[in-house]
Design a protein around this nucleic acid. Structure first.
Length: 293
DNA sequence: GCAAGCCTGACC
DNA sequence: GGTCAGGCTTGC
């Protein structure tokens, strides 16, 4: 599933294979993946140069050439669960679920957007609109400082697992890296976020960054559908310690990994290495008041 | 029936 | 305002 490391890997691939090239033609084969009118989408992209690449969390933004700051000149890509962005020879057979094709000048290749489950979206927007999208996301998980991380945890009563996946507190983490970071930091996924002892919260902040950096170095994780810009899978799957390893022995203590559903998401963890928090209540907990009833 | 990211809406 | 369930989608 494309999370921060997968999107970053695609960005790097596009920097190598698509940056500086002109979009000479646009074909929308399935308008359901386009936000807004498909005709506007085509008109705003066709003929432009791919001038830059940006990312915040799991959102990829392709900057297109153009001088008018009020005109749409960003292509926003959200990969959803099964989205793929590849640079492919134009004559290569069109795989099923290929929804958008951008022909690239200076070579016989095209940029393809493919998405089996169609949770992904493409959108053409202005700088202002891009900034509004980014503003709704918390700090990028690789860039968030310890101070920001600790401050964002404060007062949160929901499970730390859900907190990590909520893109408003920090952005870029999905189910795979949430489970992996919690295992590395030895934190039970149901621990209320704001109850984490300071040392544990610091461990988690460091674990998040380390896991993401390592996953990027391995080119991301391909559980099934993820492919980089060259169409190749990532290699981090074999490095996963708990995700989708239910029943396998924990790499640290050899006891079996267990699975738990938290907010409708499966969570994988080691009950021995990630014990439930011993204290049930946080410092400064507010109880339900019966006064005035 | 399950997996998943993200959005919407219900609930307190 | 925070938290969570539900729905979207399709291949296994």
């Amino acid at each position: 599933m494309p999370e921060l490391p997968e999107v970053e890997t695609i960005l790097r691939g596009l920097a190598e294979h698509a940056l500086g090239r002109r979009v000479t033609a646009v074909e929308v084969r399935n308008r359901a993946v386009i936000m807004g009118a498909a005709a506007d989408f085509v008109r705003n992209i066709a003929g432009k140069l791919i001038a830059g690449l940006e990312r915040k969390g799991k959102v990829l933004a392709v900057r297109l050439s153009g001088k008018n700051p009020e005109a749409p000149r960003y292509l926003l890509v959200r990969l959803g669960m099964t989205g793929q962005v590849t640079v492919t020879p134009r004559e290569a057979p069109l795989e099923p679920h290929t929804h958008v094709r951008l022909a690239l000048g200076a070579g016989n290749e095209e940029l393809r957007f493919r998405d089996v489950r169609r949770f992904g979206r493409l959108r053409c927007c202005t700088r202002r609109e891009l900034e509004a999208v980014f503003a709704r996301l918390g700090p990028d998980a690789r860039e968030i400082t310890e101070e920001q991380f600790l401050a964002a945890l404060r007062g949160r009563r929901g499970a730390i697992k859900s907190w990590l996946m909520n893109q408003q507190s920090l952005s870029g983490i999905g189910n795979i890296y949430a489970d992996e970071a919690l295992f590395a930091a030895r934190i039970h996924p149901l621990t209320p976020a704001g109850y984490l002892p300071l040392a544990a919260a610091r461990r988690l902040h460091r674990a998040v960054k380390r896991i993401l950096d390592r996953a990027i170095a391995w080119g991301g994780t391909s559980v099934r559908d993820y492919r980089n810009a060259e169409g190749r899978p990532g290699d981090f799957l074999s490095e996963l310690r708990v995700y989708q390893r239910t029943g396998e022995p924990c790499r640290r203590c050899r006891r079996p990994i267990r699975r738990l559903v938290i907010s409708g998401r499966s969570s994988h963890f080691c009950p021995h290495c990630q014990p439930r928090p011993r204290r049930a209540l946080p410092p400064g907990r507010r109880t339900r008041s019966f006064a005035g009833r």
